[in-house]
Design a protein around this nucleic acid. Sequence first.
DNA 1: TTATTTGGTTTATAAAATAAACTACTTTAT
DNA 2: ATAAAGTAGTTTATTTTATAAACCAAATAA
Lengths: 98, 98
Amino acid sequence: MFKPLDPLLHSELRLAVMSLLISAETAEFPYIKEQTGATAGNLSVQLDKLAAAGYITVEKTFKGKRPCTLCHITPTGLKAFEEYVETLREYLKPGASG
Amino acid sequence: MFKPLDPLLHSELRLAVMSLLISAETAEFPYIKEQTGATAGNLSVQLDKLAAAGYITVEKTFKGKRPCTLCHITPTGLKAFEEYVETLREYLKPGASG
DNA sequence: TTATTTGGTTTATAAAATAAACTACTTTAT
DNA sequence: ATAAAGTAGTTTATTTTATAAACCAAATAA
């Protein structure tokens, strides 16, 4: 039947963030914001949720004198992403019972 | 970058319904309910939304004396589903720029 | 020094999902 | 015949989620 989709990942913005972080190793807040087209507020909230779940880490650093928020994916996050993709395939491949 | 995902399809239940209808040609309300594990109320609401978008048609018939709600996918719905899958792939295949 | 920009967070609002309650009718049991 | 229980759903209320608007603090530019 249909296995439930991880609700934390089944969100357009959070999924986009995870997608970026998988290829990017680490990414800065403004970069993610630009790549996803999200507002800063929304991104801030969604990063918090991903961090609370342990899917990413959010590191507060400085770049010269300015604050700089660095994000990167955790092993837990990577695993969750992979599982999400696996689960989703069942929704996308109709007829393929499994 | 990230193309927006059709919000109508980016819903666990509606996606499951569409997935079923693609393989099933037509399906009865109770069958969809059983296969998705949804409550009747939720299913009713989500079927309405899919129908309002023209993604499915909902036909009210009778099976003997009992009411019977038949659903089937429309060409519009099929196209939307395929586009959704295509768009989603960009989120799932990190690094593959396109 | 007073804007303006950068880099965010917090809070309020809108939208969506879900569940609970209800309607209408049928079948079964009494 | 009537009551109880089941089927097939809809409507409405509640909760959750997503989004946007408002705000704060520091740095830079005018």
